[in-house]
């Protein structure tokens, strides 16, 4: 496989031909913030946190789905990108009811971490305070729509890793919701295998183990990678 050389934040980086900008940057220890990206599942480029500037291109490109090219000059952390990222976070916090203080994921939440990293000390946009429910019907897991950022990580692991197709997005726009089967209580799902990958995939406290209380919901991200590698490459990296 041919190697490509490019510049990321002034640093010369060599990458494999099929790598994305995100992969190349991470290999070079250059952090790019992400939210909807999850190692091991297909990227969708939806959260826009990983947008980067490419010299000579007017448009910002999502690093998670943009392939490396020879000679690219990439900027991942300009003042403008930082501003956009903070705004995106403010929009996410205002969209649903993210109350960190009483969240199972407090302290282990990717959204909370991103806000901290981007200096988001308050939200200037109006909180929408939608009236959303919590599905606690499942015997093992709970789904709190109030904390969902619609990143679809759970949907993708359910479809592409587990292959069950239980979870999906329903509705559209700001009314989008994660549903199980025909929008029935999770416990009534005919297709759910209770594998728990969705819970492992969730970046926030939207999906959680029942019984977890505030700040107790920790995830083992390596588990997903382990399964993906096992299924795709037949390698069990214990």
């Amino acid at each position: 496989m041919a190697a490509k050389t490019l510049t990321i934040d002034g640093q010369l980086v060599s990458a494999e031909e099929n790598q994305t900008l995100l992969e190349a940057a991470r290999d070079a220890q250059i952090p790019i913030p992400t939210l909807c990206h999850l190692d091991g599942v297909m990227d969708v480029g939806a959260c826009r946190m990983c947008l980067v500037e490419i010299v000579g291109t007017p448009k910002l490109l999502p690093a998670c789905v943009t392939k490396v090219q020879e000679g690219l000059e990439v900027r991942t952390n300009s003042e403008r990108l930082q501003r956009y990222r903070r705004l995106l976070l403010e929009l996410l916090f205002a969209e649903r009811n993210h109350v960190c203080a009483v969240c199972v994921s407090n302290g282990h939440c990717e959204l909370q971490d991103l806000a901290t990293q981007h200096g988001m000390d308050h939200v200037r946009y109006a909180y929408q305070a939608p009236n959303l429910g919590v599905d606690l019907s499942h015997r093992l897991y709970g789904l709190d729509h109030n904390r969902c950022v619609l990143c679809t990580r759970c949907v993708r692991v359910c479809w592409y890793i587990e292959g069950a197709g239980t979870l999906n997005l329903a509705g559209r726009g700001t009314g989008s919701m994660i549903i199980t089967d025909l929008n029935q209580p999770w416990a009534d799902s005919d297709t759910c295998t209770a594998c728990g990958k969705c819970v492992q995939a969730c970046p926030t406290g939207a999906l959680f183990y029942k019984g977890a209380t505030v700040a107790e919901m920790e995830r083992d991200r390596q588990k997903l990678e382990y399964i993906v590698t096992a299924r795709e490459k037949k390698q069990w990296n214990v």
């Binding site: 480029g45 929009l91 950022v149 997005l169 559209r172 726009g173 700001t174 009314g175």
Partner: peptide, 21 residues
Amino acid sequence: CRDESCGKCVPCRAGTVQLHE
């Protein structure tokens, strides 16, 4: 635009709501 946003990406889904408001 708010009503027709597909809801996939954050700026369009949540941004149009705030712009409209």
